[in-house]
């Protein structure tokens, strides 16, 4: 069962309604397994654990919580999220093939981060100190100044595209590239970063003819 948390409602109100809804069904959902979808609503650790509490008190099991931070597997889940500290077999994750794309409709500021197993599209900027980690591609419809890690589970075909590509650091699969120490000029046009010959290269997203470059 998927529980979608509405975006523009007071958190206390959400808690009350969720509890009412689940309570009103008697033992109909007992033993059910639940995914909580926060959409792009931000929730603190405390809020998330409160939601899980409400659901589990009604005899259901929470499998995972999906939110702007990506996907969080809750207790009893068999695997950890792919993390940059583990190097996994380079396989395209099924999520990518299925087009599991997270749309982030805001600017990511310093200290904020996205971790998503599929592709990530940011409709805003990624500021320095912010981090986007994706199993698939990363597309920033704005300026990418922070850190982006595409293909985190080892997908070397992943790309990073931004309208202005000025990252502090770029990672694709297990390859890392960092910004030059001297301030360098960047063209005011969209660029794409990808692995070529084991190195991350940045190319214009548009060919001279104005056609899309890949």
């Amino acid at each position: 069962m998927l529980i979608v948390i509405p975006k523009r409602r007071e958190f206390e109100d959400i808690k009350r309604r969720l509890d009412e809804k689940l309570g009103g069904t008697g033992r109909f959902f007992d033993g059910g397994r639940v995914i909580i979808d926060l959409g792009d609503r931000w929730a603190s650790e405390k809020m998330i654990s409160e939601l899980i509490d409400i659901v589990e008190r009604r005899g259901l099991t929470v499998l995972k919580v999906v939110g702007p931070f990506g996907v969080r597997l809750v207790g009893g889940a068999d695997t950890d999220l792919p993390s940059q500290s583990q190097s996994c077999e380079p396989v395209a994750s099924p999520a990518i093939a299925a087009g599991n794309t997270l749309l982030v409709k805001r600017t990511l500021r310093s200290g904020q981060g996205i971790n998503h197993p599929g592709n990530v599209v940011v409709l805003g900027d990624v500021n320095p100190g912010a981090e986007v980690i994706a199993g698939g591609d990363i597309i920033v419809m704005g300026t990418l100044r922070g850190v982006a890690h595409a293909g985190v589970t080892g997908n070397e075909g992943a790309i990073v595209v931004a309208l202005r590509l000025l990252p502090t650091q770029l990672r694709v699969a297990n390859v890392i590239a960092r910004a030059p120490d001297e301030r360098s000029k960047s063209p005011n046009t969209p660029e794409v970063a990808r692995i070529r010959d084991g190195m991350i290269v940045i190319e214009s997203y548009l060919t001279p003819g104005g056609k899309v470059g890949f």
């Binding site: 940059q84 500290s85 100190g129 890392i176 120490d181």
Partner: peptide, 28 residues
């Protein structure tokens, strides 16, 4: 933690992969 600045003052921000929390949590 949470307002990291020293890396910027040192000009080393673009080299960060792991941080102090990764160390204390045993991730690296």
């Amino acid at each position: 933690i949470g307002l990291r600045n020293l890396d910027i003052v040192m000009g080393l921000e673009n080299r960060i992969v792991y941080d102090i929390v990764n160390v204390t949590e045993g991730k690296c």
